[in-house]
Design a protein around this nucleic acid. Structure first.
Length: 640
RNA sequence: GCCAACUUAGCUCAGUUGGUAGAGCAGCUGAUUCGUAAUCAGCAGGUCGUAGGUUCGAAUCCUAUAGUUGGCUCCA
C-alpha cells in the first residue's frame, strides 16, 4: 500500500509504504536531501530516517528552518560525547542539552578537562564527523536500557533511565561506536556537523543540586556554516570588549579592592554618572508624586524579626553588636518605610503615599556569586514603596507601567520583557493572600495590555513580583525593574489608615524599582553603549584640543565658556600632536572634540569632531553650544 | 559556598627544565609647535597577591590564605 503525504505547498506526494523523510527528499531532488536535517510531521520534528505515516502534513527541515539549529547543536553535543568517550573512556556521561547560543555536555571525571584537552577533543570531533557515521534511532524498553547503560559503564545514564516509568519506551541514538539516551531528533549523519567550537569547561552540580557531585561541563556552540560560527565568535569578542569591568577601569569610572570585596569604589567620573542617574530619577519622582526619605543603615534586629527578614533573609544580612544590642545593616528599605508610614495617623485622603529612597543597602552574597557591578555586596536601589488603599492599586500599577517604559526609552532600551514571579517555597503569610497578590499583578499586567511570562517560585519571600528585563545593544537580556505587591509587611507592622466611613483599613504596599540598582544599572549601561555614554551622562562631554601653543588661550576661553554653560568640559594642553590628542579623547569616548588652531582662533570658531560621526567641520561656538545643550536637555541617546 | 583557572611596574602582558626580574603603553624630563586615531630621545618605576615551607638558591616547586575570572547553586 503506498502512502501519501502533503507538502507545505499543499501538493500531495505518493510514497511507498515505510518511506522516510529521506526518501521523500530524495524523490524531490538530491540537493534537497543533502540540505535536509530533519522533517516536520504534522508540526512535530522527526528524524529524516523515520518512516512516515500515511496522510500527514510534512515539511523538510533545512538550515533555513529556525528549529534546525537546535537539532544541529543537539547532534553536536552527542558528537562531543562520542569524542570524549574515545579519548577518555573512563569519563561518565551526564546530560548534554542545547542551550541559548550552543550546547553543553556534563561528564564525571577524576581530573577536570584542561583547555588542551578541549583542543584534542575538538580534533577528535572533526575526525568522527569525517567518518560519516549514520545517526540511527534505537528505542529500548526501560529495563533493557538500564541493562545496556550498565554494560556500558554509564551509572549517570542508569540513574536517569531509572527515573522513567517502567512501561515507557526509551529513545536513544547510535552513531558508530557511541550510543546515547536521547529524545531526538538528530541530523541523519555525523558528517552534517562541520562548524562547531568548544568554548570552555566549568563545573556543574549533577542534576543542578548543590548536594550532588560536581561534573565537568564542556560548553560549545555550532552553526550551519563556518561563516556563521565565525560571526558568532566575533560577537563574543565584541561582548568582551564591552565588558563593563574592563571599560570601567579604562575609563576611570570605578575600582575594586580586597579591603571590601565585591564592593565598588566609584571614582570621580563614575560618581558623576551615578549622581546623574539619581538626579534623573528624582526629576521624575517630582512629576510622579513620590516623596524622598532617608532612613538608617543599621537597625535593631527586633525590626527585622517583625518584617520577617530575620527568619527568611538572615543568611544575606550583615550583623553587628553595640552596647549588647544586635543590629543588622539594611538589605532592603521596606521595613524602614513602614516605620515612617506608621509614625503618624494616616487618612484615606493621604493615600497613596509614595516614598522613594536612595539608601545604601548591604547584602551578604556568597563569595562565588559576585560579579563586577552586576552582583555586589553593597548597592543602592532606586527604591520606592507605595502605600495605597486596595482600590487604588490598579491605578498605581498602571501609572507605574507608563513610568518605567518612559525611563527605559530614555536609555534606548526598546525591547522590554516582563516576567511574573510567583510564590517561593521560603515565604511568609497564608496562601489565600498569595492568591490575591498574584492575581492582582497578573490582572494589572493584562489590563495594561502587557505580555508576560510566568516564573513560578521566583517571587520574594513577602510577595510575588513582576520583573522587567531589557535587551541591550547586543540583545542580551538583563533584569532591571520590579513591581511587587505586598499585603504582609503592612499587616506585620500594624499599619492602618482611616477610611471615609471612619473605619480602619490596612494599606497595600507596592515595592518598586526601575533601574534596579544603580550599580548594576551602570554596569549594564556601560555594556549597552560600549562606554560611549549619551552626552547627558558622559563624565566629560567635550574636550578642547589646541593644535599649537599659540592658541592655548583661545582654547581655554572655549573650555571656560562651556563650563559656564554647565557643560563638563576639559582641555588637552599636553605637548602632543593633535592626532595623539584625538586618539586619547576617542579612547576615553568623549562625545565631542573641539579642534582649534590658528584658523579657528582668527575666525572665532571651532572645528567639531564627534566620537562616532568623525570630523563635522567648522562651526560657530554659539551653534555648537546650542546643539549640545539641546542634546543634554532632551537626554538624547545615540541610535547604535 | 562548591569546581577550575588566574594574580609579575599605574595598565596590558613576556619570563624556557628553580640560578636573585623584562617589553609596550601610561608617568617624569628635554627636544619638536605639528590640522582630525599614537613625534622623537632620555629617565624613573617591581620585597613577582599575602604568609609559611622545600632548596646552597624560589616569580618558578609544595601548603595555607586573600582577591579576581569562568561556571554551578543562589540573586537586584
Amino acid at each position: 500500500m503506498p502512502i501519501s503525504v502533503r507538502l507545505p505547498d499543499d501538493s500531495v506526494r505518493e510514497l511507498r509504504d515505510g518511506a522516510t523523510g529521506a526518501d521523500l527528499a530524495q524523490g524531490i531532488g538530491p540537493r534537497l536531501l543533502e540540505a535536509s536535517l530533519a522533517i516536520k510531521v504534522d508540526g512535530h520534528l522527526q528524524d529524516l530516517n523515520a518512516p512516515l505515516p500515511d496522510g500527514v502534513k510534512v515539511a523538510l527541515v533545512t538550515s533555513k528552518d529556525p528549529n534546525s539549529l537546535e537539532i544541529l547543536r543537539h547532534s553536536t553535543s552527542h558528537l562531543l560525547a562520542q569524542a570524549v568517550k574515545r579519548l577518555f573512556p573512563e569519563a561518565k556521561a551526564g546530560i548534554g542539552p542545547v542551550i541559548e547560543d550552543g550546547f553543553y555536555y556534563d561528564f564525571q571525571v577524576e581530573k577536570f578537562f584542561t583547555p588542551e584537552d578541549l583542543v584534542a577533543i575538538e580534533d577528535e570531533m572533526r575526525k568522527v564527523s569525517q567518518e560519516a557515521h549514520a545517526v540511527v534511532r534505537e528505542d529500548l524498553g526501560r529495563d533493557e536500557a538500564i541493562a545496556r547503560f550498565q554494560a556500558m559503564g554509564e551509572p549517570l545514564k542508569v540513574e536517569l533511565v531509572s527515573d522513567i516509568p517502567a512501561d515507557e519506551k526509551i529513545s536513544g541514538y547510535r552513531q558508530g561506536d557511541f550510543y546515547d539516551l536521547c529524545r531526538g531528533p538528530h541530523v541523519p549523519n555525523t558528517n552534517k556537523l562541520k562548524a562547531f567550537k568548544l568554548l570552555h569547561v566549568a563545573a556543574a552540580y549533577w542534576r543542578g543540586n548543590e548536594k550532588n557531585a560536581q561534573l565537568c561541563r564542556i560548553y560549545g556552540t555550532a552553526f550551519h556554516t563556518q561563516k556563521e560560527l565565525d560571526e558568532h565568535l566575533r560577537r563574543l569578542e565584541e561582548a568582551k570588549a564591552r565588558d563593563h569591568r574592563k571599560l570601567g577601569k579604562e575609563l576611570g569610572l570605578f575600582s575594586f579592592h580586597p579591603e571590601a570585596p565585591a564592593s565598588p569604589f566609584f571614582h570621580p567620573k563614575g560618581t558623576i554618572i551615578y549622581n546623574l542617574l539619581v538626579d534623573f530619577m528624582r526629576e521624575h519622582y517630582r512629576v510622579e508624586g513620590y516623596s524622598e526619605v532617608i532612613t538608617p543603615q543599621a537597625l535593631d534586629v527586633s525590626m527585622w524579626k517583625t518584617s520577617g527578614h530575620y527568619d527568611k533573609y538572615k543568611e544575606n544580612m550583615y550583623f553587628t553588636e553595640v552596647e549588647e544590642r544586635e543590629y543588622a545593616l539594611k538589605p532592603m528599605n521596606c521595613p524602614t518605610h513602614c516605620l515612617i508610614f506608621g509614625a503618624g495617623k494616616q487618612s484615606y485622603r493621604d493615600l497613596p503615599i509614595r516614598y522613594a529612597d536612595f539608601g545604601r543597602l548591604h547584602r551578604y552574597e556568597r563569595s562565588g556569586v559576585t560579579q563586577g557591578l552586576t552582583r555586589v555586596r553593597t548597592f543602592c536601589q532606586d527604591d520606592g514603596h507605595i502605600f495605597c488603599a486596595p482600590e487604588q492599586m490598579k491605578a498605581e500599577m498602571a501609572s507605574f507601567f507608563t513610568f518605567i517604559m518612559k525611563i527605559y526609552d530614555t536609555f534606548g532600551f526598546e525591547e522590554v520583557r516582563v516576567m511574573l514571579s510567583t510564590r517561593p517555597e521560603k515565604r511568609i503569610g497564608s496562601d489565600d493572600i498569595w492568591d490575591l497578590a498574584e492575581n492582582a499583578l497578573a490582572d494589572g499586567l493584562r489590563e495594561a495590555g502587557i505580555d508576560f511570562k510566568e516564573s513560578p517560585g521566583d517571587g520574594a519571600f513577602y510577595g510575588p513580583k513582576i520583573e522587567f528585563q531589557v535587551l541591550d545593544a547586543l540583545k542580551r537580556p538583563w533584569q532591571l525593574g520590579t513591581l511587587q505587591v505586598d499585603y504582609f509587611l503592612p499587616e506585620r507592622f500594624g499599619l492602618r489608615y482611616t477610611r471615609a466611613d471612619n473605619t480602619e483599613g490596612t494599606p497595600v504596599m507596592l515595592h518598586r524599582a526601575i533601574l534596579g540598582s544603580l550599580e548594576r544599572f551602570m554596569g549594564i549601561l556601560i555594556e549597552h553603549c560600549a562606554g560611549a555614554f549619551p552626552v547627558w551622562l558622559a563624565p566629560v562631554q567635550l574636550t578642547v584640543l589646541p593644535i599649537t601653543d599659540r592658541v592655548q588661550a583661545y582654547a581655554a576661553e572655549i573650555r571656560d565658556k562651556a563650563q559656564a554653560l554647565g557643560l563638563r568640559a576639559e582641555i588637552d594642553l599636553r605637548n602632543e600632536k593633535v592626532n595623539a590628542k584625538i586618539r586619547d579623547a576617542q579612547m576615553q569616548k568623549i562625545p565631542y572634540m573641539l579642534v582649534v588652531g590658528d584658523r579657528e582662533a582668527a575666525e572665532g570658531t571651532v572645528s567639531v569632531r564627534h566620537r562616532q560621526k568623525g570630523n563635522l567641520g567648522g562651526q560657530s561656538l554659539e551653534a555648537f553650544f546650542t546643539q549640545v545643550l539641546e542634546e543634554v536637555r532632551t537626554r538624547a541617546h545615540d541610535h547604535l
